Simulated scan of single mutants.
Amino acid sequence: MTPLFTPLARSLPSSVPFVGPEALERRMGIRFTARLGANESVFGPSPKAVEAMAAAAGRSWCYGDPELFDLKQAIAAHHGIAAGSVAVGEGIDGLLGYLVRLACGPGDTVVTSRGAYPTFNFHVAGYGGALDFVPYRADDHEDLDALLDRAKALRPKLLYVSNPDNPTGSWHDAAAIASLAHELPEETILVLDEAYADFAPENALPPIDLMRPNLLRFRTFSKAYGMAGARIAYVIGMPETIRAFDKVRNHFGVSLVAQAGALAALADQAYLRETVAAVIAARGDLARIAERHGLTPLPSATNFVAMDCGGDGAHARAILDAVLKRGVFIRMPGVPPLDRMIRVTVGRPHDHRLFETALAEALEEVGPPGA
């Protein structure tokens, strides 16, 4: 039979970057009572955003504005930058896909950290790029010095860094990120994933007007704004770089409802501040739960806490599986040495009580490392 797809497509594994909680429920025959694995915000969107999306839903017979004019203007005004420095897309995942399509051809090199956000790697593989990996530092931070050295040696098309980081929750200070941007080879685009920027300490984020032709900064409404299901995010960069997204993006990819919700969410900064404060308090609660049960919580600048289980990946996987079967959805990093951890998204007090009960029972079932 004549192959229907390209050699590249046929060479790709039949896999997805993430297995969703819905798939796990179907597979395991259970219903999760706490959803703490996907770094969603249990606090939800601003009520004003919900109201705006509900109103827009009645006009869903219309396409959303393909130029996203009002939203780009609002994002630009919020950050104090020119609207030409903003592109909007279907979540950071969608924007990363467009960037890889723009920058990478088959065989082109891309550098990232081993164990960093896997969807970026998924896009690179899908366009035939060649991934090159740098290990995390011993303190579970992405190794900016090693990444820069690798970039100088290989001159890759893209260098991916997340700050704050997923899956560890760690962060670098603004000066270190700015130095990386300035020292990177000019032909290498720094893909700076700032999905968790709204939770980060102020000294972790370079000034938003740090602009270079080869620097792109990705922000989202999925995390602190509580709109993960709406699929909307944006990227900031110099106008001549940002304009390239218009060549490949799905111009009707961001729905009318998502645009309305993002506009309203952006305008309600008081709700955002309340959410961030709630997340910070909940992070502390999760850290105390980990410590009460002999796990080591990593410092976090995100809406999740990574917990070192004290053993290897097999030990952490056993704990993860035991927690899942007790109806609490969490995740863990998939690559050593980060796979010694479980990762728990912050929730409300009831969610945390369910998690603590499941964790205590899981630890009793699994036993200590090496048991």
Rank of each mutant, 00 (worst) to 15 (best):
M1T: 14
M1E: 10
P3F: 05
P7K: 09
L8H: 03
S11C: 01
S11K: 02
V16D: 08
P17L: 11
R27I: 00
M28C: 07
S41M: 15
P47K: 13
A55K: 13
A57Q: 09
R59Y: 04
W61T: 04
Y63L: 13
G64L: 05
G64D: 03
P66Y: 07
P66D: 06
F69M: 12
Q73F: 03
A77L: 15
H79Y: 15
A82H: 12
S85Q: 11
G89E: 02
G89T: 02
G91Y: 01
I92D: 00
Y98S: 02
R101C: 02
A103R: 13
G105I: 04
G107R: 14
S113H: 09
R114K: 05
G115F: 03
A116K: 06
P118T: 14
H123S: 00
Y127C: 03
G129F: 01
P135D: 02
D143P: 04
L147M: 10
D149H: 11
A151V: 05
K152L: 09
L154I: 15
R155K: 14
K157A: 09
L159Q: 07
G169T: 07
W171L: 03
A176T: 05
S179I: 01
L180H: 00
E183N: 10
L184T: 05
E186N: 14
E187R: 11
V191I: 07
E194V: 13
A197T: 13
D198C: 11
F199L: 14
E202G: 08
E202A: 15
N203W: 05
D209A: 14
D209V: 08
L210E: 05
L216S: 08
F218M: 02
F218A: 00
S222F: 10
K223A: 11
Y225T: 02
G226W: 04
M227C: 09
G229I: 10
I232K: 02
Y234L: 13
I236Y: 13
G237M: 05
P239V: 02
P239M: 06
E240M: 10
I242T: 09
A244K: 00
F245R: 08
D246R: 15
K247G: 05
R249V: 00
N250C: 06
N250R: 15
N250M: 14
V257S: 06
G261N: 13
L263N: 12
A265S: 14
Q269V: 04
A270C: 03
V276C: 08
V276S: 12
A277N: 05
V279A: 06
G284E: 14
D285L: 13
L286M: 13
A287F: 08
A290M: 08
H293A: 10
P297T: 04
S300E: 11
D308H: 13
G311S: 07
D312C: 09
H315W: 06
I319L: 15
A322V: 07
A322T: 06
L324H: 15
K325D: 09
F329W: 12
R331Y: 03
M332T: 05
G334I: 04
R340I: 03
R340S: 13
M341A: 12
I342Y: 07
I342Q: 08
R343N: 10
V346R: 01
G347Q: 06
R353C: 06
L354G: 10
T357L: 08
A358S: 08
L359S: 08
E361N: 04
G367F: 03
